[in-house]
């Protein structure tokens, strides 16, 4: 069996990302561990978006909502655990927690529920209307967070001590990186399994032509909704990780800039490619850090890079290196 060029690139990307923090420690630059963690987390968020955008053709301009909701799940649970006050949900009270496994579950559940609610309405539209309606929903969550003083409002919410995973000291940066990296790999595995399944085939077919999918007896709406929900769940998980990385959540995680950045990451890396979002996130963080250190206007150069990709390398970084997708 020969290894395709894309597989080789994927393995290289995986190894580079894994090696980065260890190399950083060797060179005595621990800050780079945090950068690598940031890459893994943003990559994870973009893997979520890639499921909807890359496979389903659902251009969601509202994935910040899921990212932020995941972040707030981590922040709110941690703050209640720290204060020793249960979370009053009206019907019942939920104790706060600093256990990441619980935080992740709550984040994924909340992201899934929100995606279901947004998806049920948004998926009745398509094209530019879908983009706008997902944006509108995300902005609603943004303003909701701003106007909710109990959890910091505009100032955001600090996580005093990073949440914990049993058996792993997450306060050590490299450990936390490995946790995030493992979750990233898990999400990529899920993405690959979905893409190879019948569901994935139907999802990609519905991107191509919804009526044609319906005429073979598959409900395109339902397929899209399931994909949108799974996508929201993955992005919410990354939001929880992001909050714990920065030990801080703020409404900016919910803003449309964040949604835009996620789309940029997916497009830079390669829409619909397995490792595209990771490549995009790595590129994005490098831009942010290297150019951001030189000039405040680093996003100008990000824009140029995006322009170059859209004009000359439609498959993104991975597509540019690996050639066209999936030859027979």
């Amino acid at each position: 069996m020969t290894i395709s060029r894309e597989t080789a690139i994927n393995v290289t990307l995986a190894l580079i990302l894994l090696a980065m923090p260890f190399l950083a420690l060797q060179l005595g630059k621990p800050f780079y561990v945090t950068l690598a963690t940031r890459m893994a987390i943003l990559g994870l968020a973009a893997v979520g978006l890639n499921l909807a955008l890359g496979l389903g053709g659902l251009v969601s301009f509202g994935h910040a909502a899921f990212f932020g909701v995941g972040g707030y799940a981590a922040g709110i649970l941690a703050s209640h655990a720290f204060a020793g006050q249960p979370l009053n949900l009206g019907l019942f009270a939920l104790p706060g927690t600093n256990q990441m496994l619980v935080v992740w579950s709550v984040a994924v559940l909340a992201g899934g529920l929100l995606a279901a609610a947004i998806g049920v309405i948004s998926l009745r539209t398509s094209g530019v209307y879908f983009i706008m309606i997902t944006l509108a929903f995300a902005q609603m969550t943004y303003y909701f967070a701003i106007s909710w003083p109990a959890y910091g409002g505009e100032d955001g919410l600090s996580i005093t001590i990073r949440n914990v995973v049993p058996g792993i000291n997450t306060l050590i940066p490299i450990n936390y990186f490995l946790v995030c990296y493992a979750l990233l790999l898990t999400a990529l595995l899920i993405f690959a399994l979905i893409r190879g399944s019948r569901f994935g085939a139907a999802l990609q077919a519905s991107r191509q032509n919804k009526l044609r999918v319906a005429s073979i007896g598959i409900a395109p709406f339902r397929i899209g909704l399931v994909a949108f929900i799974i996508s929201g769940m993955i992005t919410a998980l990354s939001g929880a990780l992001y909050a714990d990385l920065n030990r801080f959540v703020s409404p900016s995680m919910l803003s449309w800039h964040m949604s835009g950045e996620l789309i940029i990451i997916v497009v830079l890396g390669g829409v619909g490619r397995l490792w595209g979002p990771v490549a995009g996130a790595m590129l994005f963080v490098v831009f942010e850090f290297v150019l951001g250190g030189l000039t405040e206007r680093w996003q100008f150069f990000l824009g140029l890079a995006l322009l170059a990709v859209v004009l000359f390398a439609r498959g993104g970084l991975v597509g540019f290196l690996a050639g066209r997708m999936r030859h027979g």
Binding site: A201, Q204, A205, Q208, R212, R326, G328
Partner: peptide
């Protein structure tokens, strides 16, 4: 009208 972005096997199995 096949699904051009799917393989032959995927076109068949999706249906």
């Amino acid at each position: 009208r096949c699904f051009p972005n799917l393989t032959v096997a995927e076109n068949l199995s999706a249906a």
